[in-house]
């Protein structure tokens, strides 16, 4: 049945309503506050976006297969803490590994991504081979990683980082902050994986219909493990970036970031019902989310009330996404 223009307009407004409202908010804030739409503020927003984009790109893979990853926030914390323990100044009074010289930054990053990736692979194994629903498997992994991180760090905050680690957050290349470059590179690599590799095709096939994908010869189980391992490695990278930015880390680093990342993906067009989503969806979603948070700050909205605003946005975005699926069905 051919849709009328009115119906098409209606559908467009409902499907993209959240983005439209957020842009109106941003434009309103730009008009009423002269220092909102400035290069300095734009730079700040891009910097905030960079680690969140890395998380969103990781979680997008899980969401595309109609799964979720509740352990993202805890794995970010684990990544930040491991990086923190390996990159402290040798003369720091509260040094975690006394006497150990600070590690090479790339080796530390590899260790962080390796350990975090292993946590994701374990979640993927339980989902793929033991048929545990993703929300239970990642809920359990969230607890295990939290407990493991508490034991590893002895629940003490970390600090005293070497300059070359904090330079990841303050340094620039061709005038652009290193963290923004990292996010751009991760986005390009993720785009390549999603669109140019067999693994990417498998992901979309599983998200569309896992039974049909299995019958068609897709290695569903191994793909699930790779998806969750890859996602967790990216959370580890995000934890590394956040630790550099904050100059410190604790077990609570990354708290709640997974829900924001899922909401950002959904706002941008990654469907929680599976089978749909692009890298650009995650980029748009994260950009809109960060712009909204910055706008709310400039408008003087109470910091506690901002949590409510974020929660409402998450609620609306996911409801609209499920509505799209129900209407299509």
């Amino acid at each position: 049945m051919e849709k009328t223009t009115t119906k098409k307009m209606q559908d467009f407004l409902i499907n993209y309503g959240v983005i439209i409202i957020m842009f109106i908010l941003v434009i309103y804030t730009g008009i009423t506050h002269h220092n909102f739409l400035t290069i300095g503020n734009f730079n700040n927003i891009l910097l905030n976006m960079s680690s969140r984009l890395v998380i969103a790109l990781g979680i997008a893979g899980c969401v595309i297969t109609a799964g979720c990853d509740l352990s993202a926030g805890r794995i970010i914390g684990l990544g930040g803490c491991i990086a923190g323990t390996l990159l402290q100044k040798i003369d720091y009074s509260g040094k975690f590994y006394e006497g150990m010289p600070p590690m090479n930054i790339f080796v530390a990053l590899l260790i962080v991504m390796g350990v975090c990736g292993a946590c994701g692979a374990i979640s993927g194994f339980f989902i793929a081979y033991l048929s545990v629903p993703p929300f239970i498997a990642t809920l359990a992994m969230m607890e295990i990683v939290y407990g493991g991180n508490l034991i590893y760090t002895n629940a003490t905050p970390l600090g005293g980082y070497v300059d070359y680690y904090t330079a990841v957050s303050t340094g620039r290349f061709i005038g652009i902050n290193y963290q923004i470059w990292i996010a751009v590179i991760v986005a390009i690599v993720t785009w390549f994986i999603f669109n140019m590799t067999r693994h990417g095709k498998y992901m979309y096939a599983i998200g569309g219909n896992p039974q049909a994908a299995e019958v068609a010869g897709v290695p569903v189980r191994m793909t699930f493990i790779i998806i969750y391992a890859k996602a967790a490695a990216m959370y580890g990278l995000a934890g590394f970036m956040l630790g550099a930015r904050a100059g410190g880390a604790s077990v609570n680093l990354g708290l709640g970031y997974e829900m924001e990342a899922i909401a950002a993906c959904t706002i941008g067009g990654v469907s929680v019902t599976g089978g749909r989503g692009k890298v650009s969806s995650a980029v748009i979603g994260v950009a809109v989310f960060e712009l909204m948070k910055a706008a709310l700050q400039y408008l003087g909205v109470d910091a506690n009330a901002q949590w409510i605003a974020i929660g409402v946005i998450i609620f609306i975005a996911i409801s609209l996404d499920i509505r799209k699926y129900v209407v299509k069905k």
Partner: peptide, 15 residues
Amino acid sequence: LAEIVAVFLTFSVRW
């Protein structure tokens, strides 16, 4: 930590 790992393992196998 050991307790939650054990619980999750047994849960997964029984599931």
